[in-house]
Write a protein that binds this DNA or RNA. Structure first.
Lengths: 349, 349
DNA sequence: AATGTTACTGGAAACGTTTTCAGGATTGCT
DNA sequence: AGCAATCCTGAAAACGTTTCCAGTAACATT
């Protein structure tokens, strides 16, 4: 079942069939409909290998994801896969371990599989424009940060939320509820990661409310998994630091944190409020329901693919899209303690 | 950078290079080492499209998954991807909606992408040997059931747990704790699904303990997602049916069920014990910790790929592997009510 | 009527690989 | 020495597609 069979059955040449299949303008309506007819009738499916061989590259897009265990990423992966298929490409998924270098992995993948482009999901982007140019293909960073600020913005595309602003929003929400001693749980603030940005938003929100950030209230889990989050929360609790609310940088970590709080005899939200960012399915079913800023996973996947495909198909250059989250109030945040007017929290209007 | 360049630089023909690259025996040691040398030097990577074009198939394996939102599947997908890469193949992921037909989707995928084989993950296998033979490629059903029993066992491979036996084990665990009125929450028992097998195990366990299964204690969610599970549990509770324990066919549904119990003022495990099957990460962090039978996701992925690759590479035919779960006791199961000797539960030795 | 323009079409080359086939060199046997 | 067998090699065809190029037909313009 090749293009030749279709051509014969339709009474045209293979060239014409090819043109029909690729939506070329120079083909008569009569020929077009006749070809489409036989294609349907024969259940003809083009051979991608042959197509890819003659074209400069493979009609495939890579998705490099670090830490696919994160349920938040599952949602993005699902959306990305759907969008890539809808655009007529094939997705090549590649999961990397925490130690590996995503750009390295992306380049390797792109070379061996001759990809048109790569989407990097989750991580930290720490490369110079020269290094990215060496890749030779377009790529977009989805839910990613980079440590160079706006320096090399034209070396790649990106789709993400404004991590600092959203963290600011979450912490401000807690402050508005009357909380003053607010702890933060993150995986690590050392590298130029999303965690760092969210940590900055946390600090800024406190400062703007006239509260001095206290390093004793910063709990670093070390790695991004629930076991580490649980342990990190336990360490924070053992330290005897005083706080009435906890901001966690990810839903999955927040679930573990709530468990740790419970295991230490603290009630959520009476003894400690919890807020997080992500909006994974599961967080709607914790007890109490987690208050969180829901990331638009579907839109993130969609925009990532669109950005990449537009570049691949010659429509415009790199762009940087920032999406907004939606606050889902849950039972995990309660009112803060009653303060005397003397030490009351100042909230900017 | 083609095979031709390598041939020229090595002073041999393309045929010889091809033979070296494919480990053909008929090539001199001298030529072999010379070619290998230049391959390394030029960083030559064979063009898979060209290779696939001339070969009957693509060096790729498909993974068709229904309901990738299920966190249990995420783990399997991760393992499968790793194993496929390790075996030198490419994984092509395809997620289907609940309405779609997985064999249809698998066949379509296999044809359009010229796959060597397909792994079907999660669902119900309802085809006759003739239909599967029409596919023309080997496939393995991972975490799947089929309604034909052992009739067409040689038409495909499978890797799964013994769903009925494991459900039996879970329910028996509840009975041993003293529970007698045990409800079950499943997505649907109509089709020949995993749910049905687990439902049968549930019934059998009750019968073997001398308890008559009561249809009033069967809660059907309708679909496999947490919202439906929540609703299904609520319906069960509104029905005023009396039960002291709940067996849920999946961890993610159990999380939603616990939430529903809580929202109706019932405590777990004091008022109702909960046990499930799956062992997703999250279930270790519910409050209380979910008692569950942990499925060996890594082994499932690994065995699925091994089975398929063995067939692809000509080592043996279809095989059927059954793995065991591991019981993780959690706080979600407590002792049942105290019975008088008159209506005490009979437990088989 | 001749010419130019437009709209469409088919032939053929090209993509990079594998594999068949035939043949050349070397070796072993008589 | 002659012949067969063995081992290795290269030429060439094939895989299914896209695209360049040349060409035809119809139509409009002079």
């Amino acid at each position: 079942m090749t293009i030749k069979d279709v051509a014969e059955r339709s009474g045209v040449s293979v060239s014409t069939v090819s043109r029909v299949l690729n939506n070329h303008p120079d083909v008569s309506e009569a020929a077009r409909s006749r070809v489409m007819e036989t294609v349907r009738k024969l259940h003809y499916v083009p051979n991608n290998s042959a197509r890819d061989l003659v074209r400069p590259q493979t009609a495939a897009i890579g998705l490099v994801v670090r830490g696919a265990g994160n349920p938040f990423f599952s949602g993005v992966i699902r959306a990305v896969e759907q969008e890539i298929n809808a655009a007529g490409y094939t997705m090549v998924l590649h999961q990397i371990r925490s130690g590996e270098d995503e750009l390295q992995a992306g380049a390797e993948l792109a070379r061996s599989k001759r990809l048109l482009g790569v989407i990097l999901l989750g991580g930290c982007f720490d490369y110079t424009p020269e290094q990215t140019a060496a890749l030779g293909i377009p790529f977009v960073c989805c839910s990613f940060t980079n440590s160079f600020g706006s320096l090399n913005k034209d070396a790649y595309s990106s789709v993400s939320i404004d991590d600092q602003a959203e963290a600011y929003r979450a912490v401000t929400f807690l402050i508005r509820q009357g909380h003053k001693n607010i702890a933060i749980l993150l995986d690590s603030k050392q590298d130029h990661s999303i965690s760092e940005l969210r940590y900055r938003g946390y600090c800024q929100a406190l400062l703007d409310a006239g509260i001095a950030p206290d390093t004793a209230l910063v709990a670093e889990a070390g790695t991004f998994d629930m076991a580490a989050a649980y342990e990190g929360t336990c360490r924070l609790l053992r330290s005897q630091a005083e706080f009435t609310a906890l901001f966690v940088i990810a839903d999955s970590m927040a679930v573990a944190a709530m468990k740790a709080l419970h295991d230490h005899g603290l009630r959520v939200p009476e003894d400690c409020s919890v807020i997080a960012i992500d909006g994974i399915d599961m967080s709607a079913y914790t007890i109490p329901t987690l208050t969180t800023l829901i990331q638009p996973v579907g839109a993130m996947g969609k925009e990532s693919v669109h950005s990449l495909v537009d570049i691949i198909e010659g429509r415009g250059g790199n762009r940087h899209i920032q999406l907004r989250t939606a606050l889902r109030p849950g039972g995990s945040v309660g009112a803060g303690p009653v303060f005397t007017s003397a030490n009351d929290v100042k909230i900017k209007p």
